[in-house]
Simulated assay, not measured.
Amino acid sequence: MNHIDPSVQLDDSVQIGHFTVIEDGAQIGKNVKIGNRVTIHSGTVIGDETTIDDGAVLGKGPKPGKTSTVKLDKTIPPLLIGSGVTIGANCVIYRGATIGNDTLIADLASVRENVKIADFVIVGRGVTVENHVTIGTRTKIQSNSYITAYTDLEDHVFIAPCVTTTNDNYMGRTEERFDKIKGATVKRGARVGGASIILPGITIEEETFVAAGALVTKNTEPKTVVKGIPAKFTKKVDERELL
């Protein structure tokens, strides 16, 4: 048995599984497919031709812990999901996020509030996207990567599995850290290899290639290959590999 609030805007073409809850004010587009045990919180907007797999939670309101440094706006807008989107099983996407058209959020991924994801993006299985993150068109983030708060990924960026971004050089101590928290800026066409770690505030320039397992401690130069611990310049990116 499903629970659908009478105020929900629901087209007749929508398919809904079992034990799903859709709260007040939600708007569901045409030809949307909603699986079993899905929760769609109040005000969430879902575009046409979108698929939502079993167990997904959409539009969840953030609730920081008592010792958290996260500051919330008094009013957080509803979750907005575009057309042709696929939301995997057991994903959690928070209120205040915007998901562009034809994007994939794979199974078990988490997307926090104040996140903007553009069109044709892939967010892989088990990826965590924290708050205040922007992700550009046709960017790919592969399984189990961690995108920390205040990170910017531009268009056509490739993030390999298990990449870790960081944003706090003080690791939670001293008041000085608050105005210096900043994640990475990964510019257009850059590629970051598996299990790499990017330190706070680092800029990965356009078309940089970060080799697997690198520890990036300094800003890179455009169209260069960096590798090692710490990562250092190795060579220029082959012209054939550039966008």
Results as ranks from 00 to 15, higher is better:
122 I>F: 09
159 I>H: 00
100 G>I: 04
180 K>S: 13
130 E>T: 10
133 V>S: 12
155 D>M: 00
86 T>D: 11
172 G>V: 11
69 T>S: 04
135 I>D: 05
81 I>L: 05
96 G>R: 14
117 I>F: 06
121 V>A: 01
177 R>V: 13
176 E>A: 13
175 E>F: 09
121 V>I: 01
187 K>N: 13
156 H>A: 03
135 I>A: 06
76 I>D: 03
134 T>I: 13
142 Q>P: 10
87 I>C: 11
142 Q>W: 15
85 V>S: 11
88 G>I: 09
179 D>N: 14
95 R>G: 07
72 L>T: 01
173 R>D: 12
119 D>S: 02
79 L>W: 03
184 A>I: 02
128 T>C: 06
125 R>M: 13
170 Y>A: 12
148 T>D: 14
162 C>S: 04
140 K>L: 10
134 T>S: 15
111 V>M: 04
110 S>L: 08
125 R>D: 11
140 K>T: 14
117 I>Y: 04
95 R>A: 11
127 V>I: 07
122 I>D: 04
93 I>C: 02
97 A>G: 06
66 K>Q: 08
121 V>Q: 00
105 I>L: 14
183 G>C: 10
74 K>N: 08
85 V>I: 12
180 K>E: 15
94 Y>F: 12
106 A>S: 14
108 L>C: 11
143 S>M: 14
130 E>Y: 06
106 A>F: 10
146 Y>M: 12
81 I>M: 06
172 G>F: 10
152 D>A: 09
66 K>Y: 05
109 A>T: 06
143 S>L: 13
157 V>F: 02
183 G>W: 08
75 T>E: 10
179 D>T: 15
131 N>T: 09
111 V>S: 04
185 T>D: 05
117 I>A: 02
106 A>T: 12
184 A>V: 03
140 K>E: 13
147 I>S: 08
103 T>A: 15
152 D>W: 02
171 M>Y: 15
175 E>G: 14
69 T>Q: 03
71 K>D: 00
185 T>V: 12
130 E>G: 07
164 T>Y: 00
89 A>Q: 15
72 L>A: 02
119 D>Y: 01
166 T>L: 06
102 D>F: 14
132 H>F: 07
103 T>D: 13
107 D>E: 08
106 A>L: 10
159 I>E: 00
117 I>T: 05
184 A>N: 05
150 Y>N: 10
162 C>L: 03
157 V>A: 06
78 P>D: 06
108 L>Y: 04
146 Y>V: 12
182 K>I: 08
156 H>F: 05
144 N>Q: 15
141 I>F: 10
178 F>P: 01
87 I>P: 01
113 E>L: 10
171 M>T: 09
141 I>T: 06
126 G>D: 09
166 T>V: 01
87 I>V: 14
66 K>T: 11
116 K>M: 07
131 N>C: 09
159 I>D: 00
133 V>I: 12
99 I>M: 05
86 T>L: 15
